[in-house]
Amino acid sequence: MRLILRAWRRNAYLYRRIMGQNLRAALEYQSDFLLSVGSAMLTQVLGLVFLGVVFSRIPTINGWGFWQIVFIYASIFLTEGFASLFFEGTWRIGYFVNHGELDRILLRPLSPAVQLLSSAIGMNGIGNLLVGGVMIGESLTHVHMVWTPGKILFSVILLLSGIVIRTSINFASNCSAFWVKNAGNAVPFMVHSISEFAKYPLTIYAPALQALVGIVVPYAFIGYVPAGYVFSTSGMAWIAVLCPLVALYCAAVAGLILRTGLRQYESTGN
């Protein structure tokens, strides 16, 4: 037990060290930094404009008001922001595998998962965090609700679960590079674009799509389910209890896929 704890502490320390260096390097490319933060913010604000335009003509969609949908929408972007800023490395797995750079990672006495996760920093995440955060804040002030310490605490847990779910899905889908051996592996991109469905209330979709987003690739637990809890939508509060469990499940699956992929890489090389 103590050994495991020590390993985790070491991993966390080295992750911080490497990310610190990444951050310094990223800040050197000032125009890139500003551009990526700016374009991330722009994308989101224009998404918000879209919602605004739609809601200027209708009051609710399936019982969800403008600010409630903004909350769901922003949750998707906020968790994306965390995933980009801290775990952008997931998107480089394909590069590592295809260019034989994974060798280098395997030759260091540090967990490959830590090295992969810390291999890049996505400064655009800052843009997503900023706009997503402001949008969530705004949505919470526009909808009347009662906050208790317990509710605040559980909301934070929901946010953390969302980040874990998001990152794990990114990680797992990018691990497809171990099997799809070409530079244009589109699987991670495809899986990522499934999150498109998670920007709106799940109830608008056909059952098959609800199953896809709710169970197969559980993006619904990032925005929609937490929104149901936070806004006390009838019958949804208890589903939110599942969020942390779904997060653990996703992380475990991602870890398993990485392990299988590494075994495959070790037997075929590159």
Binding site: V54, I61, N182, G184, N185, A186, V187, F189, M190, H192, S193, I194, E196, F197, K199, Y200, I204, Y205, A206, L209
Partner: peptide, 19 residues
């Protein structure tokens, strides 16, 4: 890859359709 990539557009438009 191309066709899988196209799925992003498909998902997007499907989401829009249901919305």
């Amino acid at each position: 890859s191309f066709i899988v990539n196209m799925s992003a557009s498909v998902f997007y438009i499907l989401a829009m359709f249901f919305l």
